[in-house]
Design a binder for these strands. Structure first.
Lengths: 185, 185
DNA sequence: CAGGAAGTGATAGTCTCTATCATATGAGAG
DNA sequence: CTCTCATATGATAGAGACTATCACTTCCTG
């Protein structure tokens, strides 16, 4: 599967997402087209595959016992980031770059974020950290939005500024949304 | 175009989104299939068409002169809502219902929200209300997320609670994200 | 009335994605 | 070693979304 994704990323970067067919990818990865679909389900999923870490929500739930909601999510995200940053940084950067340049991929990614938002809201409510349904959903949406914005900001600078740093700045803004001014960057 | 959308909504509700082909819609609306594509561009757009109001961003920009960012966006949204609520409430409810039940539509809608988020961030920055790029993007993402969550909450209750009320509650949560408790609902 | 712009329908074709079937590969039971 | 079953793969056929092109109509303008 990694071989298929790697071959697909190469082709997409070389020729553009729309100009590459599933047949091309299958041929480059030395598998058949139906196999690609069995593994990934759709063309977009080849790029989006592996985007999320299922243990992240467990970590959030654990941290909710001692920390306020926003801090719990922020710290869990930073910890997850540290874990994968060393190994997968370049691959994530490549995928994010593709993602931001092709509307079909952006839409699919945004759909994934909605799913993650719902899962996060369920954790916030389940742990009684934010009992009200609407409140939990609003917080989860804000958090997921901040994460997405941070990743896009990171990509726009070619990954030169550590993603953890940007994420902290984004969360700081979330925690004090009404205060437009902060110290100089 | 309204005739095509109305016919499509009827068919989607009766048979389910996936079971209806463009040919079916074209036949029901008494046009040809290529015409449907020329007008809407894609199957999802038939449902999503007319979702946004271009003058909304101008209104936000105007309000930024006198109000803080969150209040400006909130008031502009409520005003826009009041304007369309009387006429289009039922149609929006039907479309939202379809939207939440079919992953392809959810993803497309989420992609639109990303576009709206970027446009809103540009307005916040352009008016010097939130000069920093990341700050503006975080705020815009939080706002768009809150709006989406409010609309979904509204649909989940079959539109029985006024959308404006839900939106105000969502924004109240955004403005004080660190305070988990509020007065009883 | 002539000519041009814009919208429509018809047709053909590409590509994504699904379903089905046959085949191969590998693990465990006898 | 062989039989059996489960799983993965490939090949094929097909539906349907979407694009491109062409011819035709309509309507607007000079």
């Amino acid at each position: 599967m990694r071989r298929v994704q790697a071959a697909a990323l190469d082709l997409f970067e070389a020729r553009g997402y729309d100009a590459v067919t599933i047949e091309d990818i299958a041929r480059a990865a030395e598998v058949s087209a139906p196999t690609v679909y069995r593994n990934f389900g759709s063309k977009e999923r080849i790029v989006l595959w592996d985007e999320y870490d299922p243990s992240l929500l467990d970590d959030v739930a654990a941290r909710l016992a001692t920390a306020p909601p926003l801090a719990a999510v922020r710290d869990a995200l930073e910890a997850a980031l540290d874990r994968i940053y060393a190994d997968d940084r370049d691959r994530i950067l490549r995928r994010t770059r593709l993602l931001m340049r092709h509307p079909a991929l952006r839409a699919a990614s945004a759909g994934d974020q909605t799913g993650f938002r719902d899962a996060l809201a369920a954790v916030l409510r389940g742990r009684r950290a934010v009992p009200d349904e609407l409140d939990a959903a609003v917080l989860a949406a804000a958090v997921v939005g901040a994460l997405a914005v941070a990743v896009e900001h990171w990509e726009r600078q070619d990954g030169k500024v550590a993603l953890g740093t940007i994420l902290r700045r984004a969360f700081a803004r979330l925690e004090a949304p009404a205060a437009p001014r902060r110290r100089g960057r």
